[in-house]
Amino acid sequence: MSTADPTLPPELRDRITGLARAEHRPRAAAISALTLVQDQFGWVSDPHLAETASLLGMSPADLDGIATYFNLIFRRPVGRHVIMLCDSVSCWIMGRDAVCARLQARLGIRPGETTPDGAVTLLPIVCLGHCDHAPAMLVDRTLHGDLDAETAERLADTLRTPAP
């Protein structure tokens, strides 16, 4: 789903308009609206951003200023799955660099990149609040802890069907 449809589906438009109406000012729904778009398309494309902006009564520049500010809004296509590997201190102490190196080798990409088959994007993320199970990573919406290079690699493999 890394390529975007040219327009937002009507239900999504309605949900965004609804979010905007529920707020004291429509712009307060900026992040939730972008998140909705991203949930559906994986990322926020230029046309989607512009359309979302107009639903919120904002200029595209204004909304993009917000979208590019926050870590969790993707303005570039991502894979079907996103691995966010914690790079903060507890996970680092507990060996996240080794986990990352293995993931990179296995996926053939560096952090910030997507596998050529469009399956997986690997991203660093700040502390996931799972430090007692460091190293930790978030795969899509699921948190995984107590990783080592092998468990991380096995997890990554399950994301790619068929496995390479």
């Binding site: 904002m58 520049a61 200023g65």
Partner: peptide, 13 residues
């Protein structure tokens, strides 16, 4: 409306 600050930390535009 058409000028804005983009990005964050030392990567501002």
């Amino acid at each position: 409306e058409d000028l804005a600050a983009f990005g964050a930390h030392d990567d501002l535009y």
